[in-house]
Structures are given as C-alpha cells and as structure tokens.
Design a protein around this nucleic acid. Sequence first.
DNA 1: CAAAAAACTTAATCATGATTAAGAAACGAG
DNA 2: CTCGTTTCTTAATCATGATTAAGTTTTTTG
Lengths: 205, 205
Amino acid sequence: MKNKTTTIKAVSKAESCVPLLHHIRRYVPLSDDEASLLLDSIHFKIVNSKAFLLQAGQVCGGNYFIVNGCFRMYLNTDYGTEQIIQFGIDNWWIADYTSFEQQRPSDRFIQAVEKSSVIVMEKKEQDVLFQKLPQLERYFRIVFQRAYTAQLNRIHFMLNLSGEERYYHFHNSFPDFVQRVPQYMLASYLGFTPEFLSKVRAKRG
Amino acid sequence: MKNKTTTIKAVSKAESCVPLLHHIRRYVPLSDDEASLLLDSIHFKIVNSKAFLLQAGQVCGGNYFIVNGCFRMYLNTDYGTEQIIQFGIDNWWIADYTSFEQQRPSDRFIQAVEKSSVIVMEKKEQDVLFQKLPQLERYFRIVFQRAYTAQLNRIHFMLNLSGEERYYHFHNSFPDFVQRVPQYMLASYLGFTPEFLSKVRAKRG
DNA sequence: CAAAAAACTTAATCATGATTAAGAAACGAG
DNA sequence: CTCGTTTCTTAATCATGATTAAGTTTTTTG
C-alpha cells in the first residue's frame, strides 16, 4: 500500500515535470542523469484559482515554472487599487526576483487566475543546482535575456500605441488569452480602466 | 618606434577595460589568465556624440559595454517621430539582443548622446568566450535578470504615475542624469511631449 | 564671432481616457 | 436552482496631457 503510493507519486512527478525538461532542452543539453538530479531538487505543486504563490510582505519562496495555468503579478497602489504588471502562462518562469535573490520581503502578489500547476525551485536548491549543472546558468541567461527584450518591446508599445491600439495589438498577439482572464485584469495590465475597455469592445468585435 | 606604439596600445586597452573586469568580478570569479583571454576577444572603441552603434536595417554587430558616456536606443514610429525606449550609461550593457542573437536586421538605432567609449563583444567572440569561460553565462544571467526586473519596475511606474510624477520620480532617482540629456529625449523616454515637460518644470524647480 | 541649427518655452485649443454612478449580466457556492 | 457576489456595460462629466504655432534661448559650426 505504502509502496504503491510512493511509486505513483514518483511517476507522477517525473511526468508532471516533462514540460520543464522539454523547455530546458530547447536551449541546453541535459542528460537523463542530470535530469533526475534536477528532479530531486524541485517539487510540483497544484495551485487553486485565486491562491497565492507570493503575497506582499513575504519573501518570494521560489522561482516558479508554470506547467499549465495562468498567474498575475500585481501590487497595491497608493490608493487602494491593484496594478497588474505581469501575466504568466504555460512555460514561463515567474517570481519576484529581487525578493527571491536577496531573500527580502516582496511588495508584490503572485496569484493564480485559474487552477494551475507549477514547478517550484527554491533559492537554496537553485544555488546548489547551478553548481551541479552549470548549463542551467546558460539556460536562465537565455530565459532572462528574452524576458528582458520582451519587456523592452512591451514598453515600446505602451509608449507608442493608444489604449485602443494596445488592446487590439494584444488581442491579435494572444487571441486565446483575452478570453482567459477577466476583462478588468486585462485593462489593468494594458494600462487603462475596465470602463474604457468596455467602450472599446462595444465599438467593434 | 613600432615597439613603443604597440606597448602603449596594449597598456591602453588593458587600462580601458578595467571597468568591465571590475564589473564582471562583482558577480563571478575571474583569474588574471582568464581576464587576458577575455581581453583578446573584445575591443575598445571611442564613439563620438551622435555616432551610431546600430542603425535600423543593420544586424546588431556587438554586445556593447558602456565604459563611459551615454547612449539612447530608439525607433522611428509610424509617423515620423523618434521613440526612445532605453538609455544606457556607464557600466551598462546595450544591444538589440533579438537582432544580435539571431543575426537578423534590427529595427532600432543605438546612438551616442555624448562622446562615449564602449567595449565591443561580437557575436562570434561571445560564443567562443561562453565556451572558454562558462562563468560568463552566470555573469550575464545575473545582468539580464536585473535588467528584466528593472524593466518590470519601470512598467510599474509607467502604469501608476502621472507624467508629472514620472518626471519627479526619475529626477529623484537619477538627479545628475537629467542634466545630461536634452529635455526632448527625456520627454520621449518618459512618455510625454517636450512641451509638457517644459510646463512641468515651469511650475517648480 | 556670426549665422544657422537645435533645443526650449508659452499659451490656446483639442482629444483620449479617467471618474462617477447606476443598472445588467454572469458566475459560484450552498 | 437560487441568492449573493463579482464582473461588465452605459453614459455624463472632467482632467491630463497632446497638438499647434509662434517666439526665445542655447549650441554648433564655418
């Protein structure tokens, strides 16, 4: 009985981590032995809709790889409202890296927008893994280099497009995503009010 | 004669690259032998004010470490104006990393705002260096991780602060920098018009 | 040093999108 | 299936910041 449960869990973990291994192998080599070393240092976690990976005041406990689902990162603004600064979906890493690296309290929330599953890499484990598998430095170098350029491009759109253009640009870039999150979250992310988005959508499609 | 010139040049290069070595050693170990390996793969370049490191249509030829000076990265918008999306100053790396990595034409300009000096790391050389000095992957992982979080924070300010607040926040964060670039560039970077900035400054200090 | 170019200022008018408020629709827990 | 909560819509008023245009100051270059 105990044995069976253990076996099921082990298989389940290996299976649930396939998307991460696949993602890593897109960028750097990783032997099966190295992969099992990695698996020993991470854990898999189901996160219910509206549950938090991180809340303001806490130290960001992990670097999270989103296996599937959707998360939002937001802050509380000076007056009461929530400002979404980032969404994360399948195959993205998400964390407050300032809090994570320095192990200091965060000012952010990371919350599941829908039932999701993530792989958690804790700071200690990550430090050890970087020693054991130095190609992970290269992997994350590439991941962050891309994340950085993505944010620069996003800034370009924020500076150059009107609210309406921003909405349609986002809609064209991620057509399915628009259905997936509440409109008020999308409005916050795109930098305008839900009322304005409602007005834009009323005009055409 | 020939000998003397060579000696002077060699000393000059080693000296001019000190800020880069110093920056790298803030994050990863680098022996003197490794440092000289690095020096063999990079070159130092003086860039006059208004000269370009990159122009739209070209492939981004290098990853540039700014030893001293100031650069702006900008694009031409749909109607004639220039949109500055990034400044770079001492001890920052700057490049169009999409163009650089894929060796495909860029849509951006990187131009010196004042007489500057940079260290150029070309794509080929960088690839070889990553093989020879794997700790450079870690170094750039950290550099990009920070650049990414810096851009996320910037997005937060763009979404939450009014134009006037953005100006004063920037002014407080980088007081000397405000003197250094023309106001119309600062206005573009902060996402409003030069006329508006002029009005804001007229109110107080 | 003088002329030309680049950068900055001021002010009037205009437009995008915020705010407020009330009602409608969709969703979720019991 | 129904009540309560969350989300979305509509419309009127308001404010931030854009646009336009003309004039002034500063910087660059011959």
